[in-house]
């Protein structure tokens, strides 16, 4: 009887250890890995390694709207369903990675090219999951002088632009659409539900310059009448509303003071 109780305790203890090992707690990604996507709509089915996409490397050079509005990438990982043939025809990754575009005096490497031809030096640059691929740019070297933040990539991207470390372009050569200067909408404050919590000051300027309007409206934010939509932190943590970007690519939700800025 006594032995049975000891065994039972041991079983409970070991189960606890096992759960702790496999982990239900979300591990915080390292700065270079924050915003990293693995795209595997068709890769493995075609015998290729999935694509590893680093947001940091692209956001240094381009605003979000270039890719998510003009090029047409979905806001959800894997939501676009990019095919090699799309890239070959100059769409999606192929809009820039076409072997012709010159950016900062350097030719941008070509993505998928001839069908059925595998060129490991080129293909592996993107189809790199599980491979030891040497990158052209090292995160820590590139961002060494950038203003720092506590979470996410550990970079304050907004300040990095203000201080002139980055100059994200809002247009690319292959997309001819010409847009007039963006009319910036005024900032506004949102009152939090929790008493004593600083108010949220939403910077329309920053969001529209980087994202354009149609990234957020109406897909992410369906209503703009003040007070009509009740945003809750649990929903945002689940990836709704602000959580579509913040927590995945833009600064994470742990950084409360970045949004809750206006003392009450």
């Amino acid at each position: 009887m006594k032995h049975g109780a000891i065994i039972l305790v041991l079983v409970f203890f070991l189960t606890g250890v096992l759960y702790a090992e496999t982990g239900v707690k979300k591990k915080r990604p390292l700065p270079p890995d924050y915003g990293r996507l693995v795209i595997n709509n068709y890769s493995e089915k075609q015998g290729m390694a999935p694509v590893v996409f680093d947001h940091w490397q692209h956001r240094i050079n381009f605003t979000c709207r270039v890719c998510h509005v003009d090029v047409g990438f979905a806001m959800k990982a894997g939501g676009t369903g990019v095919r090699a043939v799309d890239n070959m025809n100059g769409f999606y990754c192929g809009a820039c990675h076409n072997g012709e575009m010159v950016f900062k005096d350097k030719k941008v490497f070509a993505s998928c090219q001839q069908k059925g031809v595998y060129d490991d030096t080129r293909c592996d640059r993107c189809h790199s999951l599980g491979k030891q691929v040497k990158r052209d740019f090292d995160f820590y070297t590139v961002t060494a002088k950038f203003p720092k933040e506590r979470f996410g990539n550990g970079i304050n991207w907004e300040k990095a632009e203000e201080d002139g470390y980055i100059h994200p372009a809002s247009r690319i050569q292959s997309i001819k659409i010409k847009k007039p200067a963006l009319k910036v909408q005024p900032d506004f404050a949102l009152s939090p539900k929790v008493e004593g919590m600083p108010e949220i000051v939403f910077s329309h300027k920053k969001h529209t310059v980087w994202n354009g309007c149609e990234v957020c409206h109406p897909e992410i934010f369906t209503g703009v009448k003040k007070g009509l939509t009740k945003y809750s932190m649990p929903e945002i943590f689940e990836g709704k509303y602000c959580g579509v970007c913040h927590g995945k690519v833009a600064f994470p939700l742990l950084d409360c003071q970045r949004c809750h800025t206006k003392p009450v």
Partner: peptide
């Protein structure tokens, strides 16, 4: 394809945005 798929998606987002603004302006 793929032109059709790419441009339909882009066109849809423009259209949705204009509709969204019509709704917003009417509400206001």
């Amino acid at each position: 394809e793929p032109q059709r798929r790419v441009y339909l998606k882009r066109l849809q987002s423009c259209r949705d945005f204009y509709l969204f603004l019509i709704q917003t302006k009417s509400d206001n």
